[in-house]
Each structure stands twice: as C-alpha cells, then as structure tokens.
Nucleic acid binder design. Structure first.
Lengths: 190, 190
DNA sequence: TTTTTTATTGAACATTTGTCTAATAAAAAG
DNA sequence: CTTTTTATTAGACAAATGTTCAATAAAAAA
C-alpha cells in the first residue's frame, strides 16, 4: 500500500492553491470553507475528510516554510561541525533573513485573529534549533527545555516588535540589535 | 449622560457569567454564541450589540486579570521608588506567582486554538511593566521597545514551557530558574 | 486487464452565524 | 411622576457550518 493516494494529493494541492489565491485578496479570517472549495472545485465534504477547519489547511502550508527555516538555520553548520560559541549566537542570526524573505506569510502568523497554534509551530521550531547550540555550553543545572524556551521566545519577541514596524528594519540591523541586547545584559551586572 | 446604562452592565455580567460557567465543562472553542445567550437568557441580537465574537467577551474578562498582574507587579514599588537594579529583576519576579494563582485561566490563554490576541494582551502588559525598569539602565543605543519586547517575551517563553509541564514547579522555583538563566548568559561570555 | 479498495461526489439535514427589522421595556433626564 | 431616550427583544432571513448517506469514479492491487 502506498503512503498516499494520488487523489488525496491532487485534492490537497487544489485546496492549498485556492487558499493561497484567496489570501492575496482578503484576510484569512474572512475566508470561508465553502469559498475555498468552490474555487478549488472540490466538494465541501471532501474538505472535511482531510481537515477540520481552514487553519489546518494553512498549517500544512506553514510546515513547508518551517522546512526552509530549518535549512537556513543549519546552513552555518554545513562547513563546521561545531561553531565558535564566543561569537554571539552566529547560527541564530539567519532567522531574521528567513523572516524577511517570507514577511507576507509572517504578517499572517503574527496577526491577532490567527490561532495560537501558528505561534507554537514557530516557537517549537526555533526552540529545537537552539537546543543544538545549547548542549555545548551546558554545564549549568538549568533545564535545557526551559533555557531554550527562554531564548527562543526572546527572539520571537524581537520579531513581533519588528513585525509591528512592518519589518521596516533590514534583517542585518536586527542581527546587530540582538548582539547589542545581549551585551546590555552583561554590562548591567558588571 | 452616564458612562453606562444599567441594562448594559446587567447584560454583560450575565454573558460573562454564562461564559465562565461553560468554560468549566468544555473548551472555549466548542462554545457557541447561541449557547452562551441561551444560558445567560440574553437575546442573541443583544450579544452582537456589544461583541463581535466570543473572543471579545473573553477579552473583557481577561482585562480584569491583567489588572491583577499590574498590581502584583508594582507591589515592590510601593515602598521604594527605585529598586536596586543590581538584584536580578526583583520586580519581574512576581509574575510567576500571578500566573500560578490564575493557572486555570492561563491554560486557556496558552492553548492552541485560542486567537493570538490573547497572547498579545499578556505580552503588551509585561512589556509595559518592564519598560519602567528599562529607563534606569538605558545608556545603550538599543531601542527600548525592542529591548523590552525581547525580555518580556523571553519570560513568556518560560511561562509557556512551565504551562507545558502543567505548572508543576512552584512559582518560587521559576524565580530561581530565571536567575540562573540570566547568570548563564553572563558566564558563557566571560 | 480485471478486481478490489477507497476517495470523491451530490444531496440533504439540523445547527450556528451574522444581520436586520419593528415592538417593547427599562433606564435616564426633565 | 412624566417624558425622552435607548437597550433589549422576538422573529425572520440568507449564508456557512458540520455531519451523514448512497452512488460514483478514480486509483491501487491482482
């Protein structure tokens, strides 16, 4: 038995394409299931066969972008197995470029009416990526899950603020900003 | 003219009470407007006169709790006008106790199906509170909005992870954890 | 190819949503 | 207390939701 029927693939593709088309003209919140199915020429019952709500369909598209995030994050590791940890989170730094590339998408992710699950998809991804660096400097008794949650969400905080400025600053400036913030935290205890 | 009609107050109270009752037996997501109105004995049209969706009703309840957060946060300031900044974020520290007190509420706030707006309500509140401390140590060229966004969301990251453990750890442990994490960030660059 | 499996369809259904009326009742203002 | 203002109501409406069914068509397996 095959992992997925061709008909399923075709149906899902049609639905995703329809959603993406509709997203270009109106906000996610105002798009109905009926509308997507009408455009995709898919029976509404078929939609419910694969998804429970529009958000589930969007999440599938979301995962493609998370794949790119992981790839761009891991790029610095392709040449060196272990990065110089003296440099300020050198690997973290690619995340801002990734967000900038997909800012139309992230405007949706960070919008008020969207479900928290989108935030978690991003949060979990960044947290997982950070854990790789974590192991290196882990002499402390702090729970790695807690530490990575702290750092991952701190960065998401910057991104939210960035998004509030409609991603005006270049990604490179955000990198510098992150470095400066980390320095402040050191100075203030000197 | 008075700020609000008695009828409005009564209606809103009835709706909030109905929502809170329903929340004890089922998740927010599965509660319908029709259901709330039926229980509150309020005409459905009246609901739409005050709110656009269930989430708006929940947000009104949310704001009561945000009031308590602000109060408990500002408690350390009641006796001293300026806190010793050498101590690790002494004022921040009350937030974990607040969350613990209202953990049934925060389980909803951090649940996957809820809209991002709930997250923003909390994020904005914590960010505002942090800005008070911020001014003291602000010699750097970093945008205060960015810095407070970073720190506020970092703490929310800890709370999310805490929530994943269903708030098992005592709030006091979370305080210690926060102190340890801040120390790690210093050590790792010595 | 033929057979078997199963995804999709159209149609129907009860329910909820969001919006709108004119009638009513409650509160505020005089 | 009387008048004025306005919040609430019941009812109706088109649309969307969520679910179910037997019939059909497409894909996988033989």
């Amino acid at each position: 038995m095959l992992k997925s029927d061709l008909r399923i693939t075709k149906t899902k593709q049609a639905l995703e394409e329809a959603l993406l088309t509709l997203l270009q003209e109106k906000p996610l919140k105002s798009i109905s299931i009926t509308e997507i199915c009408r455009l995709a020429k898919i029976n509404r019952g078929t939609f419910y066969l694969h998804y429970g709500q529009i958000e589930d369909l969007f999440e599938e598209y979301y995962k493609e972008i998370m794949k790119d995030l992981t790839d761009s994050y891991q790029e610095p590791y392709r040449h060196a197995d272990i990065l110089n940890t003296k440099k300020l989170n050198p690997s973290t730094i690619r995340i801002f470029h990734h967000i900038e590339t997909y800012k139309n998408f992230y405007r949706i992710v960070f919008s008020r009416t969207v479900p928290m699950s989108y935030y978690y998809l991003l949060f979990n991804q960044v947290q997982d990526l950070l854990k790789r660096d974590m192991e290196l400097k882990l002499k402390s008794s702090v729970d790695p899950a807690m530490l990575s949650a702290y750092q991952a969400n701190a960065i998401l905080g910057l991104i939210i603020e960035w998004g509030r400025n409609d991603f005006q600053q270049p990604a490179e400036d955000m990198n510098l900003l992150l470095v400066r913030i980390l320095n402040i935290q050191i100075e203030s205890r000197g």
